[in-house]
Structures are given as structure tokens and as C-alpha cells.
Nucleic acid binder design. Structure first.
Length: 510
RNA sequence: GCUCCGGUAGUGUAGACCGGUCAAUCAUUCCGGCCUUUCGAGCCGGCGACUCGGGUUCAAAUCCCGGCCGGAGCACCA
């Protein structure tokens, strides 16, 4: 070993060039550039046997891109390892769940291109939670506490154990039955560790009484499990839990509950919550914006709710790609819209039909223009079919200063007069190196394009987060269906949102 | 406040676990150029980063300690 040290010392005493020279002689491969081009994939996870993951939405609102990414990760690994996906509604709070959201969430998940093998609702599993609760009581790991909320709080803060903790098994069992009937006030608590540094471990509440009717099971139950308990039981059936670090401190609790009950422990992997710059995701932040009419609803195109993204023209696959890009990051990513747009553009470019559109148009009259019917490709390189345009003397064009222009794909025009209308004269069709402009023939559709921008710049509300451009487009857009995403050449990708006298589009991105 | 977690170009990300192919990856933004009957796509090039300070070591983005900054949690919500 001394020899090695001496050799290292000797080599280190050489200067860099000499070291390189020496290395070139004895180990030339070192200098060959290693190509590390690889497609971005999510890292492997430890697994053996069947893989089961879960998507756990609470049916209390619309899901957003954060849920979408979380669902994507869980779905991705289940599919990668030929496992199963459980869609599980975490609906154990009768005061918050709403019937309508069960379906809307399923629609949104389907739209994302994410499927599942098993669907369940925790609200339909309450008897099972009761069973395990009694089991915990029998193992002296849980007790009924009749203290009020405030005292429980204080005890927790002061790390003091409650006297309710000393009750015997039989009494706890009896009180638990009364709790189920709602005949006494109180909660079921876990015998955790009141001195734990993790406050979540200080005898957390497992069940509480809630008399509100539940959208699925109505008034069947008065005693409802809390998140940690229901989740601990349910997650014993999955092998991999991928979730954001909001739940970091609950892992210890849930693991402990399963340990007490002799249930299996899933593999847990956490990642950070992420956000999109200038765009709120939290319901409590979005709701006031809706109430103040700053955004138009949960599907507002400036939001990153799944509905908002869909309306804007973001493709489901873009969410998948974004998931691969960010990965199970433990930093706190703040995604720029440009990254979403760039991914989306690459996916959209080969499949979006092209049409002509002119914003803020001016009229151009070309007196001696030959009337004709022309055919144009729907896409410059892909085979998406053709479209026809009938052209005459009258055109709509953007405002120009040039003396000579070429109407793209048509002919050259010499400008004679600039006024309210522009008057021009037909030259010829030979391709010249002059400015090519977009145009729309006399037969046109009126178009409005809504252009979204970020809602917030820093903490400041962006007053110009929604702009509108009016203009005209070729009549061929009449054949489009609402929801189709096309490209208005030299303007950008747009999604048809509404088809009336005026065609309303949402600007997706350039 | 307390407890955890994190910090690589403007942004996202690879590398870190296992120190030496890192003179640091890929993408995005921005800027040039090429190509194109789209200002889109594509191609080529450019700018641009290891949070700071100490320590360990022949050698630190990588290991250790501390500061700074950011985030999360601290419910009879999930």
C-alpha cells in the first residue's frame, strides 16, 4: 500500500499535460468521448413479486397537474413492473366529499391516459376499519379519549399523557361501540408516544364522530376513521407508495399502526411537491380567484387543473413527459411554462393541421387578381390531407409597409395605395425573395383567440393574464370540432373552444 | 417557534449512495447562423451552474461539521 501511495504522489507531482501524455500511452480509451445519450426514464425501484400501487384522490374538488403527476408516477411503476393499479377514493370525511367529484376525477384520470385495475371507496370499507380498530384496542394500542379537543391539543404540546389512556380493554371496547352509535362524545386514539419528536406520533386520533351525511353511504356511519388510520390499513395492500412529502410525518404513524396490527409494510418513496411558475394549485388559493371573478372557473385556461390544461390544448402525453422530466425529485421544482409548452409543441407539431389566420386584419383589394381555387396542404411535411381555398380580388392581410409582398402560397402583389383599404396590383406567381405574408380570402370566418399568460408575476396578480386577438381565418375551419387543436400558421397552436358566429380559440402556445 | 427535508446555469434535470473519465449531462429560455413558400418544426453554434465557510483526503459537486436560503409538517382535513 505504501507503494501505491508513492506512485500516486509521483504522478501528482507531474503537471497536467505530462499526466495526460502518460495516460495516453497506457490507457488511450480514457480519452474517447463516452456517448451517454439516453432517453429519460424514471429510476428503477426495488421490487419483488407483484407490484401494486394506488391513486388516492379525495373527491372534494377537481384534480390538478400535481395529482396528475402523482398518479402518473404510481401508474407508471405499476405498468412498468406488470403490476396493478388501485383507484382509491379517500373519502372518509363526510363534510368535504361531494358526489359530483367521484365522476369528474375519474374522467380527468382517464383523459390523462391513466387506467386502473381496481376501484374502491374507503367509505364502503368502514366496517373493516372498525374491525381493525377493535383489534388495536384488544392489543392495547388504542383507547377511547373523552377529553375535548383543546385539552388533547394542549397535552400534545406539553407531551403529557391523558388519563383516558389507562382504560382497560373491555371498557374501551364498550365505549367504542357507544362511539359508533354516536351516544357519547369522544375519539379513538392510538397509543403512540407522547414524547416523540414527531408530533404526529403523540397519540393521534384514529376515529372521530361526524354526523354529516356522506354522499355515498348517507347516514350509515357516525364514527369515521381519520386519514392516518384508513390509509394505513389500505396501504397494507399496496407494495409501493409514491407520494409527495406533505405526508412525510405520517409515515411513522402509519407504519406503526400496521406494525401493531401485523400488516404488511409497503415501500414508500417520497418526492417534493412541485409547482408551475405564476400558477396557483392550492384550492384555497384558487377559490377566492373564482369568487372575485379573476378566473372564470376550475377549467380556466390559466390554471393547471386537468380541466384547465385540457381546455388550453395541453396533451395528456405532455403530463407524462413532464413526469419523466422532473422525476421523483426531492428538490422543489418550479416548472416554467416554457418547459410544458416545449414538450407539448413537439407532440403537437406533427399532428396539428395548418390554417391561415390574420389578426387585426386590413382589407387588400387586388384589382386584376385572377380568381381561382387553390389546394394547400394541411401540413408542410406530414400527410394530413389538403384543403381548398377560393380566392378573388379581396383579401384580409396584416398591416404592412412593404411595396411588394407575396401572399404566401399564392402570388406576388405590388402595393399601389395604403388607406383604410390597401389597394394592390397582381404581378405574377414566380417565387421571389420578398416578404411573404399570411392572408385570408374574402370568404372567411370571424375568429377570436384568447391568449392566456401567467396569473401571477411573483406575488403580484398579472393584470394582463388574459388577452384577446380578433381576426379572420379561412373558412376551412368550419369543419373543425370543438376541442381540436390546430396551428394558425405563423401565429401558434390554438384549440377550438367554442363554435358560434365567432369561432373562439384558446391560444395554446407558439 | 419547533421538527424534518432540500439547495447543480434564468428554469427543469443527470452526476452524489460507492470521491479520481466532471475541464459537469440533457432539455428549456435567450442570442447568432443554416434550412424552409409558417415567425412552427428541423439542423449547427453561443451565453450560462456545483449556495457559502470550514474540515477529511494526494484528490471533493460527491464524505463530515456549521452558516445562509427555500419548502413541508406541527387537526377530532386529506
Amino acid at each position: 500500500m505504501r507503494e501505491i501511495e508513492e506512485i500516486v504522489k509521483e504522478i501528482n507531482s507531474l503537471d497536467l499535460e505530462d499526466q495526460k501524455k502518460l495516460l495516453r500511452e497506457i490507457y488511450p480509451e480514457y480519452f474517447q468521448k463516452r456517448k451517454t445519450k439516453r432517453i429519460k426514464e424514471l429510476p428503477d425501484l426495488p421490487h419483488s413479486g407483484e407490484v401494486i400501487t394506488r391513486l388516492p384522490p379525495e373527491p372534494n374538488g377537481y384534480i390538478h397537474i400535481g395529482h396528475g403527476l402523482s398518479f402518473f408516477f404510481n401508474w407508471y411503476y405499476a405498468r412498468k413492473y406488470n403490476g396493478k393499479v388501485i383507484l382509491r377514493f379517500d373519502d372518509t370525511n363526510p363534510s368535504k366529499e361531494k358526489k359530483e367529484y367521484y365522476d369528474s376525477i375519474k374522467e380527468d384520470i382517464k383523459w390523462l391516459g391513466i387506467d386502473w385495475d381496481i376501484e374502491k371507496k374507503e367509505s364502503e370499507n368502514v366496517e373493516r376499519y372498525y374491525f381493525y380498530a377493535k383489534e388495536l384496542i384488544k392489543r392495547e394500542k388504542a383507547y377511547v379519549c373523552e377529553c375535548d379537543e383543546e385539552k388533547i391539543h394542549r397535552d400534545r404540546f406539553e407531551m403529557r399523557e391523558c388519563r383516558c389512556r389507562e382504560r382497560g380493554i373491555e371498557e374501551n371496547l364498550k365505549l367504542f361501540e357507544l362511539l359508533k352509535k354516536g351516544e357519547i362524545r369522544g375519539v379513538l386514539r392510538l397509543k403512540g408516544d407522547m414524547r416523540s419528536r414527531n408530533t404526529a406520533m403523540r397519540d393521534p386520533t384514529l376515529f372521530r364522530i361526524n354526523l354529516d351525511p356522506h354522499p355515498i353511504v348517507g347516514n350509515k356511519y357516525k364514527l369515521w376513521p381519520l386519514y392516518d388510520f384508513a390509509c394505513a390499513i389500505e396501504d397494507a395492500e399496496v407494495t409501493h407508495v409514491l407520494r409527495d412529502n406533505e405526508f412525510h410525518f405520517r409515515i411513522e404513524v402509519q407504519n406503526y399502526i400496521r406494525e401493531c396490527l401485523g400488516l404488511k409494510q409497503p415501500f414508500v418513496r417520497e418526492y417534493s411537491r412541485f409547482s408551475v411558475r405564476g400558477t396557483p394549485t392550492a384550492k384555497r388559493k384558487i377559490r377566492p380567484l373564482i369568487e372575485k371573478n379573476i378566473v372564470k372557473g376550475w377549467d380556466d385556461v390559466r390554471l393547471v387543473t386537468i380541466r384547465g390544461l385540457k381546455r388550453r390544448g395541453i396533451l395528456p402525453q405532455t403530463v407524462h413527459e413532464l413526469g419523466r422530466e422532473i422525476g421523483l425529485s426531492t428538490a422543489e421544482p418550479v416548472i416554467d411554462w416554457s418547459i410544458i409548452e416545449s414538450i407539448n409543441r413537439k407532440l403537437l407539431d406533427p399532428i396539428a393541421k395548418r390554417f391561415f389566420f390574420v389578426g387585426n386584419p386590413k382589407e387588400l383589394i387586388v384589382e386584376n387578381a385572377p380568381e381561382k381555387i387553390i389546394k394547400l396542404r394541411m401540413h408542410p411535411t406530414e400527410d394530413l390531407g389538403e384543403r381548398t381555398l377560393r380566392v378573388g380580388k379581396k383579401f384580409f392581410i396584416p398591416d404592412i409597409k412593404e411595396k411588394e409582398i407575396r401572399l404566401k402560397d399564392l402570388f406576388n402583389v405590388r402595393i399601389i395605395e395604403y388607406g383604410e383599404k390597401i389597394i394592390g396590383e397582381y404581378i405574377d406567381t414566380t417565387l421571389k425573395n420578398i416578404k411573404k405574408i399570411q392572408w385570408v380570402p374574402e370568404e372567411h370566418c370571424n375568429v377570436e383567440i384568447v391568449i392566456p399568460d401567467v396569473l401571477f408575476i411573483g406575488e403580484q396578480l398579472n393584470n394582463e393574464s388574459l388577452k384577446t386577438v380578433s381576426g379572420v381565418a379561412e373558412r376551412n375551419i368550419e369543419s373543425l370540432n370543438v376541442g381540436e387543436i390546430i396551428q394558425f400558421e405563423r401565429f401558434g397552436f390554438c384549440r377550438l373552444d367554442e363554435k358560434n358566429d365567432v369561432y373562439r380559440f384558446i391560444f395554446t402556445h407558439r
